[in-house]
Design a protein around this nucleic acid. Structure first.
Lengths: 203, 203
DNA sequence: GTCTATATTTCGATAGAC
DNA sequence: GTCTATCGAAATATAGAC
């Protein structure tokens, strides 16, 4: 279910059905916005810029999205789907360092495959918080919210709580390390090295 | 030299000289801006807000700072001073995992003491990048720049490069973990647990 | 669905008095 | 060093034609 997230690029050669299945304008808007929001940040990216890079006008965007924040919300949903089942699993069991480690190791490859979505959130924390503030919706089953809950759980030994946070941070740093310092490392090698690190932190 | 960073709060009781040494307006502006930039982000914080919380008008700010970005730059300097000597040390030697670990362990306590400055940078990466783009100054001896250089160094084994990044991410996550999930853990205990984690990652 | 206007607001920044 | 008043720019968002 999660694998589907990296919306199969049309660069996969001639499709079997012969149908190019061109991306919807809505999807193309999201793709452009994702890149710009990562590069320049949500606030410093104007709708004019997004429209220009897409070859349409600002007004066209408003046909597909009610507001600029609505675009951000749509992108947020991609992460939400991503973490839904993962967090569901850890939410039901009593959280332990061992289970956390298993889960995190499984997530490494998925995080690598969906780098951009995580990068977007890492680099626009303030914008997403503002988003959450105004929708004080009942079920705040957010990914970060779940994280906080587990890491605050008094049933878990202090040492393990810190190690859980640290292991996650280690993976994030490995994947999103400043700029492109790891571009010469293959995904599979990086994945292996990070999973090994997780084991050392939580083992 | 670095210890001086957390600008001795005037809450340290009656000062020996009897002089309360009230903070300069400039410093008070920076303090308010720091909190707001962390909480709402640089872009979503208006000068009007800063001035209001300070009990002055917008125009007063312009007497102390040439622009809004100038305020951000002044805050950036606090981090710059912080990392100058640390990075100087690792810059001269051939970077090794062992040296990196030593340095990182020493930094943990200083990072804990200067949480806010690091948090500011973590949460406003886009704003700081924009700052750096327009000053294509010669000596770009920035903290992040130095990090990139070390982590890209081909002389260092791939495994160690990843572990260096991971160990730093582990510390960052431990200190800035989502919200206040670790508020019940004392600084000294957190420091000890994080340094132990660093050793496990790099040892 | 996309366009050409235009409305509305907010913000950063400046001028000049005190 | 701080104020009042205002400028000019840029952005989000809307109205209505095609």
């Amino acid at each position: 279910m999660v694998q589907k997230l990296h919306t199969a690029p049309d660069a996969s050669g001639p499709s079997p059905a012969g149908d190019p299945e061109p991306k919807s304008t809505r999807e193309r808007i999201l793709d452009v916005a994702l890149d710009l929001f990562i590069d320049k940040g949500f606030d410093k990216t104007s709708l004019r810029e997004i429209a220009e890079q897409l070859g349409v006008t600002k007004a066209a965007l408003y046909y597909h999205f009610a507001s600029k924040e609505d675009i951000l919300m749509a992108l947020h949903m991609r992460l939400h789907e991503f973490g839904a089942e993962a967090m569901g699993r850890i939410g039901t069991h009593e959280p332990t360092a061992a289970l956390w480690g298993e889960l995190l190791e499984e997530m490494v490859d998925q995080m690598l495959a969906n780098r951009k979505i995580f990068l977007l959130h890492e680099r626009n924390q303030a914008a997403f918080e503002a988003l959450h503030r105004q929708e004080h919706e009942a079920a705040h089953d957010d990914l970060q919210e779940q994280f906080r809950k587990v890491l605050s759980d008094p049933r878990v030994p202090t040492r393990d709580r810190v190690r859980m946070a640290a292991s996650f941070g280690a993976v994030m740093a490995g994947i999103f390390v400043a700029g492109n310092a790891f571009d010469d490392i293959s995904s599979s090698e990086l994945s292996q090295l990070l999973r090994s690190t997780v084991r050392d932190v939580l083992g």
